[in-house]
């Protein structure tokens, strides 16, 4: 696709958008997995929140 004399600026803009969105998605997915892993480890050790044990 010929985007004219300023093609590098156009591709760099779309590349920056893809990179920033990808970093956000990867960070959020890894963070979520990390939190779920820690909850599973704590629960495996028999730890329960007060709200889970009462009633």
């Amino acid at each position: 696709m010929d985007l004219g004399p300023h093609a590098a600026y156009i591709w760099a803009s779309f590349g920056a958008a893809a990179l920033i969105l990808l970093v956000l998605v990867v960070w959020l997915v890894l963070d979520g997995r990390q939190q779920q892993k820690m909850i599973a480890e704590l629960e495996a050790r028999g730890v329960r929140r007060r709200s889970d044990t009462s009633g």
Binding site: L28, V29, D31, G32, Q35, Q36, M38, I39, L42, E43, V47, R48, R49, R50
Partner: peptide
């Protein structure tokens, strides 16, 4: 997704405190 992670983070903290 960020809110879900934050809720899970607060659960981890509550479990550690427990």
């Amino acid at each position: 997704k960020g809110m879900r992670n934050e809720i899970l983070r607060r659960r981890v903290r509550a479990l550690r405190s427990a």
